[in-house]
Design a binder for these strands. Sequence first.
DNA 1: GCCATGGCTAGTA
DNA 2: GCCATGGCTAGTA
Length: 122
Amino acid sequence: MENSKKASFFKQVYRVVGAIPPGRVLTYGQIATLVGAPYLARQVGWAMHGCPLGLPWQRVVGAGGRLLTRSPNPPGGSLQQRQLLEQEGVLFVGERVDMSRHQFVPSKGFLKNRKRSFPGPQ
DNA sequence: GCCATGGCTAGTA
DNA sequence: GCCATGGCTAGTA
């Protein structure tokens, strides 16, 4: 991917992450689709390595509600992610987020129309 | 649990 | 080769 395009891809990813409400989650694939590159789910994962402080990184999960984070980034890996999500009232089924209850389904054009963003920890 | 997949980077876009 | 992804065979009571 071209450099300028890559930069905007990252920025768009962070913008989407900042717009996930508390208690809701988005998958890597959903985010890739929302920024117009449905096949770049893995690159969303890479972008999350460089997730700026203050974004609710814990609200990004794998397909089916799987938690895929590994220490040391974030420090506590999936365990810390689960704790942060549970603090917002997110329920789990086994090791997975209960997606039927918590998957965020953005309205069309939600990025353009959103009134606010939703900060994470830190 | 396995494998096809995209991009190529290890700092913070 | 590496990875914070996603989708899900085939044989079967």
